[in-house]
Lab assay of single mutants.
Amino acid sequence: EPELVFKVRVRTKDGRELEIEVSAEDLEKLLEALPDIEEVEIEEVEP
């Protein structure tokens, strides 16, 4: 069974934007590691 992958769009407080694809596990780590995120948009990517 393929692992869930999420497309994550992040905007930081200083206005930088970042778009990455991460696994569910990595997404959890990412959110814990970035306390200064202003906006996060997450969508599931079809395998």
Rank of each mutant, 00 (worst) to 15 (best):
L34S: 04
R16S: 06
D26Y: 07
S23A: 09
E21N: 10
A24C: 11
I20R: 02
E32S: 11
V10A: 03
I20C: 13
E1C: 14
K13I: 07
L34M: 10
V10F: 11
E3N: 07
P47H: 10
V45I: 12
T12V: 04
V10R: 00
E17C: 15
E32M: 12
T12I: 05
F6R: 15
P47E: 07
S23W: 06
E38F: 13
E43V: 14
V22F: 02
D14N: 06
L18Y: 15
R9K: 08
L27G: 00
L31W: 06
L34Y: 11
V22W: 01
A33L: 11
D14L: 03
E32R: 14
E46R: 14
E17T: 14
V40M: 10
L27S: 00
P2T: 07
L18S: 03
S23K: 10
V45L: 12
V8N: 00
I42D: 02
E38V: 12
S23R: 12
E21M: 15
V22H: 00
I20W: 14
R9L: 01
E44Q: 11
D26C: 13
V5P: 02
K7H: 12
V22P: 00
E32T: 10
D14W: 03
K13C: 13
F6N: 13
E21D: 05
V40L: 11
L27Y: 04
P2Y: 09
E38I: 13
S23P: 04
E44V: 14
A33F: 10
I37F: 13
L34K: 02
A24M: 11
L30K: 01
D36G: 07
E19Q: 09
L18F: 14
E28G: 10
E41Y: 13
L31N: 01
R16F: 08
E3A: 04
L34V: 05
D14T: 04
I20K: 02
L4K: 14
E28H: 12
V40I: 13
V8K: 00
S23G: 08
P2H: 08
V8D: 05
I42E: 02
K29E: 05
R16T: 08
P47S: 09
K13Y: 01
R16H: 08
P47G: 09
V45Q: 06
E39Y: 15
E39K: 10
V22K: 00
D26T: 05
E32I: 08
T12R: 04
E39D: 09
G15C: 03
R11I: 07
P35E: 14
V5R: 15
E21H: 11
V8C: 05
K7F: 01
F6S: 11
T12F: 15
K7T: 03
E17S: 10
E19A: 06
L34H: 05
A24G: 06
R9F: 00
L34N: 07
E25P: 07
D36R: 04
E46G: 10
T12P: 00
E44A: 14
P2F: 09
K29L: 08
K7S: 02
T12E: 01
R9W: 00
E28Q: 13
P2L: 08
G15V: 00
L18G: 01
E46T: 13
E44D: 07
L18A: 03
E19I: 14
A24Y: 10
D26W: 09
E1H: 12
I42R: 03
T12C: 08
E46C: 11
L4C: 14
E39C: 13
V8P: 05
I42W: 12
A33N: 10
K29M: 08
E17H: 11
R11H: 04
L18R: 04
E39T: 13
E28L: 13
F6Q: 07
P2S: 06
L31V: 03
E19K: 07
E41N: 10
D36I: 03
A33V: 07
L4E: 04
D26F: 08
E25Q: 11
K29N: 06
E17P: 02
E44N: 09
E46I: 13
E39R: 11
R11K: 09
R11Q: 03
E43L: 15
L31Q: 02
L4I: 07
E46F: 13
E46Y: 15
E32A: 13
L31M: 06
E1G: 13
E43M: 15
V40K: 02
D26I: 05
I20H: 02
E39Q: 10
E25L: 10
V10Y: 11
E32V: 07
E28M: 14
E46A: 11
E19M: 11
E25V: 10
A33G: 09
K29Q: 07
I20Y: 13
V45R: 08
V40E: 02
K7C: 08
V45G: 06
I20S: 02
D14Q: 03
L30H: 02
E28T: 09
A33S: 14
G15D: 01
L34I: 12
R16G: 05
L4P: 15
R9P: 00
R16D: 04
E1L: 12
R9C: 09
V5Q: 11
P35A: 15
L4M: 05
P2V: 07
D14H: 04
D26Q: 12
V5T: 07
E39H: 13
D26L: 08
P47M: 10
K7Y: 01
I20L: 11
E43F: 14
I37N: 05
E38C: 10
I37T: 05
V8T: 01
R9T: 06
E46K: 13
P2N: 07
D14R: 02
I37C: 15
L31D: 01
L30G: 01
K29A: 10
E46M: 12
D14Y: 03
E3L: 06
E1Y: 13
V10K: 00
E43H: 12
G15T: 01
E25G: 11
R11A: 02
L34T: 05
I37P: 04
E17F: 14
E46H: 12
L4G: 04
E21I: 15
E25M: 12
P35L: 14
P47W: 04
E43T: 13
V5L: 10
E25H: 12
E3R: 07
P47L: 11
E41C: 13
E1W: 12
R9H: 03
V10I: 13
A33K: 06
P35W: 14
P47F: 07
L4Q: 07
E43A: 10
R11W: 02
R16Y: 08
L27Q: 00
K29D: 05
E19L: 14
V45H: 08
I20E: 01
L31Y: 04
E1K: 14
V10N: 00
I42H: 03
E46P: 11
E28P: 08
E17W: 15
E41L: 12
V45K: 08
I37E: 04
I42M: 05
A24T: 04
F6A: 07
E46L: 14
V40Y: 12
A24V: 08
F6G: 09
E28I: 12
G15H: 02
E41H: 12
E21F: 15
V40F: 12
E3M: 05
V5Y: 05
E44P: 12
R11S: 03
E38T: 09
V5K: 14
I37R: 05
V5C: 14
E44H: 09
A24N: 04
V10D: 00
D36N: 09
D26S: 07
R9I: 09
L30N: 00
L34Q: 03
E21C: 15
L30F: 12
R9E: 01
E3W: 03
E21T: 14
V22M: 07
P2W: 08
E38M: 12
K29S: 05
V22Q: 00
I42A: 03
E38K: 06
E44G: 09
I37G: 06
V45T: 07
I20D: 00
V45S: 07
L31T: 02
E41M: 12
V5M: 11
F6T: 14
E21L: 15
I42K: 03
K7Q: 06
D36A: 04
E41R: 09
P35G: 15
R16N: 05
E32F: 08
E44C: 15
E3C: 14
K29R: 10
V5N: 12
V10M: 05
D36P: 04
D26R: 05
K13V: 06
A24R: 11
E32H: 08
R11N: 01
R16L: 09
A33C: 15
S23T: 11
D36W: 07
E39G: 09
E3S: 05
I42F: 07
E38W: 14
V45F: 09
V40Q: 02
E39W: 15
K7D: 03
V40G: 02
F6I: 15
V22Y: 01
L30Y: 08
S23V: 05
P35M: 14
E38Q: 10
K13T: 07
R9N: 03
G15M: 01
P47Y: 08
V8Y: 00
S23C: 09
E44R: 13
D14E: 04
R11C: 06
L27E: 00
V45W: 09
P35Q: 14
E17Q: 11
A24K: 10
E17L: 15
L34A: 03
P2D: 06
E21S: 08
E1D: 12
D14F: 03
K13W: 01
K7M: 04
R9Y: 01
K29V: 04
D26G: 09
L34F: 13
L18N: 01
P35T: 14
L30R: 01
L18P: 00
R16E: 04
L4S: 03
L18Q: 04
F6K: 15
V22I: 08
A33R: 10
D26H: 07
E25A: 13
K7P: 14
K7I: 13
E39L: 15
V22R: 00
L27H: 00
I37L: 09
E17G: 03
I42Q: 03
I42Y: 07
R9D: 01
S23F: 07
E46D: 11
P35F: 15
E41V: 11
I20M: 10
V8I: 06
E43G: 07
P35S: 13
L31K: 03
I37W: 13
R16K: 07
L31G: 01
T12N: 03
G15Q: 02
F6M: 14
E1T: 11
P47K: 11
E19R: 11
E21V: 15
